[in-house]
Write a protein that binds this DNA or RNA. Structure first.
Lengths: 338, 338
DNA sequence: GGCTGGCACTCGAAAGTCCTGAGTGCCAAG
DNA sequence: CTTGGCACTCAGGACTTTCGAGTGCCAGCC
């Protein structure tokens, strides 16, 4: 039972610290939370918690502050993700349902997430890798130049300009269009790419076909789009006027490094597991005072991309986790329907 | 001649202040710049400049700082835009020539501009309004559902999902595709929209045609894309650790308000005029300590979108102006070729 | 054994004080 | 018009003092 109270104390410390941004002392603690014991008792507990590494004192005579380990425990054992209010749910639904295409869904999600959590939100665009080919369109812009449009099952549209080495006639164009579509439609892009490549013998084939196939294969294996992300809510960083150098500056710099952000979000696994990475647990030393709350999303069981929020270690974890999870679910549902 | 020297003094003050971020005094001024007079003389000039409102003292006994009016004069009369070094020119060329499509051009421009100026860069996506229809594609996703793809002369691709009220057969689809393409291709989108609308009599027409036309017209008149912009280099704001509240915070907040940024960039006029808006000259009071250097860009003589940088009033105007102009020219040239 | 009140102690933050030097304005002389 | 000289101002840094929130520990109590 003392054990239980200690955890209660830790929870109280985390909650107060997150709320006030100031080290919390024993007296304030008993006043604000109704733990039925005296400050002295709490002090003993705090000493114990400190020994175990869950909290520290910034300086000798000040209140306690949770350590990364403390937050970890808080997240793992003391948090029940509070469900979103029905008003919030409705807001999510209305905002996301208004989206007109995939890009719009992503952009709306970012804004939404940033607003809900008042943190920096990051959403990865769905990756190509698991999507199938829905349609390929060839548009003649000039006798020797084509616009190749690749439409995928996720709604993503990739477009490329091709300079053919030679002229192409209308009939030829129709034939080619039929050919590539027959070959690729319905296939997962990896398979589509190999099938297309097989159309062109190693030694030759017509220059035109070769050019078009090359560009399609390139577009399909282009992992640039795997790395595309949308970022929003940078303005929320302004709230952390204090701790500017330690927390805001490095984060601000990281925000433009999409590779870094991707790594922070983590790998997209299947299943919908919510990941919380606290401070030093992350891969970047400079970001040791920022945490990441992220999860995968995608239609059905597949998680083909991730989304989440990035903020200071001192953040409202339950709230953030709830928001991230809720938005991910909604986005997944929308992708399901599409 | 005293008049001339006074301007020299103003220029020296601006340059020093921009470089050092500290109020500049008479003594330091004569030392660092080779004006062949004594500090006392400079002091007289400074007093005069202050009377006329070009500079002020932050407090009684400190150096002088340029006012917005001072910067204005500096930009208008004391600045010759220094041409970019050939190395810089080459860098611009290589980076922008590597772009694969319109979006990529815009995104690369933003990064480039941010790097060159070490400020926040903003690039508006080319507006729809002056572009023509290159091709319209209809893809059947399901018997009652179409993907409508609208390809414009700028390389922009707009896509919409349409729920038809009824099923559509293959032949019907081909006919419809031909019809809309015949009607719209080559037209400026405004004209294309009216022409398309004329296809459907007010009282009826087939539901399918009506649905497709509606969505096309909507896509063509969708001014959402007029408001699309790319932002980059927010990390550069981190350099202004001082003056955080006055300069960085409001700007950081504005960065997400694309409407605000668009207004800052200004209207796209034709011609390539470089606009500099200093501090309070801008439309937003909260941004009274930020300046904007922007210009229009676009193929040929038409400026159909704008790009520029946003930063503190205390910025390197000649350098920023040179970079903005150079990037705009290059982007325009690329659009010319495409 | 655990909880509590009491008490001496620590030490950061805020407020007060002093001092220095960069910078100014003005004046009389060149 | 320029210059050297001079008295004056005042923000910012260094130093000191004060204040109080918070702590650790101990002896007594349940």
């Amino acid at each position: 039972m003392q054990e239980e109270r200690r955890l209660a104390v830790l929870r109280a410390i985390v909650e107060d610290y997150v709320a006030t941004e100031e080290p919390v002392g024993s007296k304030a603690l008993v006043e604000r939370h109704g733990l039925g014991v005296s400050p002295a008792t709490v002090r003993n507990d705090m000493a114990a918690l400190e020994d175990e590494g869950y909290i520290t004192q910034p300086h000798t005579s000040a209140g306690r502050v949770p350590t990364d380990k403390g937050y970890r425990l808080f997240v793992d054992r003391l948090t029940t993700i509070k469900p979103m209010s029905s008003a919030e749910k409705r807001a999510i639904a209305t905002i996301l349902d208004g989206a007109i295409d995939l890009d719009d869904v992503v952009q709306r999600s970012v804004r939404l997430l940033a607003q809900l959590t008042r943190q920096v939100a990051v959403v990865q665009y769905p990756t190509l890798s698991r999507s199938t080919v829905r349609h390929i369109e060839l548009v003649a812009l000039a006798p020797t130049r084509l616009l190749v449009v690749l439409i995928l099952s996720t709604g993503r549209v990739e477009q490329r300009l091709v300079e053919l080495g030679a002229e192409i006639g209308d009939d030829e164009l129709v034939d080619l269009r039929n050919l590539v579509n027959r070959t690729a439609i319905g296939e997962i892009i990896a398979d589509a790419a190999t099938a297309l490549r097989a159309l062109v013998p190693d030694d030759g084939g017509t220059t035109v076909t070769r050019a078009v196939v090359d560009v399609l294969v390139e577009a399909m294996s282009d992992h640039r789009s795997d790395e595309r992300i949308a970022v929003g809510g940078a303005a929320n960083l302004a709230r952390f006027g204090d701790s500017f150098d330690s927390a805001v500056r490095p984060l601000l710099e990281a925000l433009e490094e999409h590779v870094v952000l991707l790594k922070l979000l983590g790998e997209a696994h299947s299943g919908e597991l919510l990941t919380v990475r606290i401070g030093h647990e992350g891969p970047y030393q400079e970001l040791s005072s920022t945490s990441v709350v992220a999860t995968g999303y995608g239609p059905g069981e597949e998680a083909f991309a991730r989304l989440g929020i990035v903020g200071p270690t001192r953040m409202d974890y339950p709230g953030s986790m709830a928001a991230v999870r809720a938005v991910a679910r909604y986005v997944s549902r929308i992708l399901d329907e599409a």
